[in-house]
Amino acid sequence: MSKGRAARLAPVITMAERAEREAAVQLGRCQGLLSQAQVKLGELEHFRGDYQQQWISEGQRGVSGQWLMNYQRFLTQLETAIGQQRQTVDWHRNNLDKVRELWQQRYARLEGLRKLVQRYREEARLAEDKREQKLLDELAQRLNSGDSD
């Protein structure tokens, strides 16, 4: 009977495996997107550092008012882009946390189902062992009672 219970769970296990795999793929995608966003943020921050270094170099030689206005305008745009990219990184990080949680739930469900099936199989094996032992005991008893006749 327990073996039948384990077999009846096979489609449920298959569906749980598929759901867990899909969540794992989505988790990988989200990790990749977060990584890309972090790289882009790093590039923007590095560019800002280079641009500020250019200000130091140019400033030592003297700059025109127009150059200074252009520098400040571009630096403001760059700071805005960096701020937006930080928000993008935060969004991807939060999304990754949600997707990771979903994957963990699906993985835990799959493992729970696998343990249940294993328990059912073990129960079936024990029941089969008991049945065989009972048959052997009955056979031995018949043989012993036949010897005494």
Rank of each mutant, 00 (worst) to 15 (best):
E122N: 03
W67A: 12
L102I: 01
Q77W: 05
R86T: 00
S148R: 13
A24H: 03
G59F: 02
Q141F: 07
G112N: 12
V99S: 04
K40Q: 00
G146V: 08
G32L: 07
Q77R: 13
R106N: 13
K3I: 14
Q133W: 07
Q85P: 06
L126H: 11
W67C: 06
D147E: 11
T88H: 02
V12R: 09
Q141L: 15
Q85E: 11
L75C: 02
Y107P: 02
G59A: 11
Q118Y: 07
Q66R: 11
Q26M: 15
V89T: 05
R121W: 03
R109I: 09
A127D: 05
S57R: 10
Y51M: 02
Q53F: 00
I82Y: 02
N144D: 11
L33V: 05
Q54A: 06
L110V: 05
R86L: 02
D147Q: 04
E128S: 12
Q87A: 14
Q141S: 10
K130D: 11
L136E: 14
E128L: 10
L110D: 06
G62P: 04
W91L: 07
L96W: 08
R18T: 11
I13E: 14
Q36D: 08
S64Y: 03
S57Y: 10
S145L: 05
D149R: 09
Q54F: 01
R125N: 04
E128I: 03
H46M: 01
E122P: 02
A140I: 01
Q84R: 06
E43Y: 06
V25T: 12
S64W: 09
R5F: 14
L9E: 10
N95E: 14
G42H: 00
Q66A: 10
G59C: 11
M15L: 15
Q66L: 05
T80A: 05
E22A: 15
E45G: 00
S35F: 04
D50E: 10
R119K: 11
R142C: 04
M15R: 15
Q141D: 11
L75G: 03
L126R: 14
V99Y: 05
A23I: 07
A140Q: 11
Q38Y: 00
A127V: 10
R93C: 09
G4R: 07
Q72F: 07
Q31Y: 04
S148E: 10
L78D: 06
E101I: 03
L68G: 05
F74A: 10
R114Q: 15
Q60M: 14
E138M: 12
N94H: 09
A7G: 03
E132I: 03
R100N: 13
R106E: 12
I82G: 10
R18I: 13
I56S: 06
R86A: 07
